[in-house]
């Protein structure tokens, strides 16, 4: 997390959406998935995660519902909406474009 800083933080929303695209999930599970996929390099704090959830829920990309969890606690599950799926698709296309451009600058690749 420290290493990547702002660069990854800008993509938190898209990362969460991509995880929710497969199945509904809750905060800790999502964070664990992020950590696992990034080989432990990206671990969000509760605060970052929570604020990201509120942001994209407000935008209408996800909805949430409560369900009883394992350790006698309630869990808030999130699920992606159709709008969220559409936005995720846009983000994916956008990323392909950005990646091409940044590659050209940083890696001096002329064609990818």
């Amino acid at each position: 997390m420290e290493l990547f800083g702002d660069l990854l933080r800008g993509h938190t929303d898209s990362i969460i959406l991509s995880i929710l695209e497969k199945e509904d999930s809750y905060g800790y599970e999502i964070n664990s998935t992020i950590s696992k996929i990034s080989d432990g390099k990206m671990l969000l704090t509760e605060a970052t995660l929570y604020q990201a959830f509120r942001r994209i829920e407000k935008a209408g990309y996800i909805t949430s519902y409560w369900r009883d969890g394992l350790n006698q606690t309630k869990r808030r599950y999130y699920s992606i909406t159709d709008l969220g799926k559409k936005v995720l698709k846009e983000k994916q296309e956008e990323w392909v474009e950005i990646k091409k451009i940044i590659d050209k600058f940083l890696l001096k690749k002329d064609s990818v």
């Binding site: 905060g27 800790y28 964070n31 509760e46 995660l49 929570y50 606690t73 309630k74 869990r75």
Partner: peptide, 17 residues
């Protein structure tokens, strides 16, 4: 209260892990 419940759930999960 919702915020707290959510964070408590996450922290408890992390704690048991």
């Amino acid at each position: 209260e919702d915020v707290k419940a959510e964070i408590i759930a996450n922290l408890t999960d992390r704690y048991y892990d």
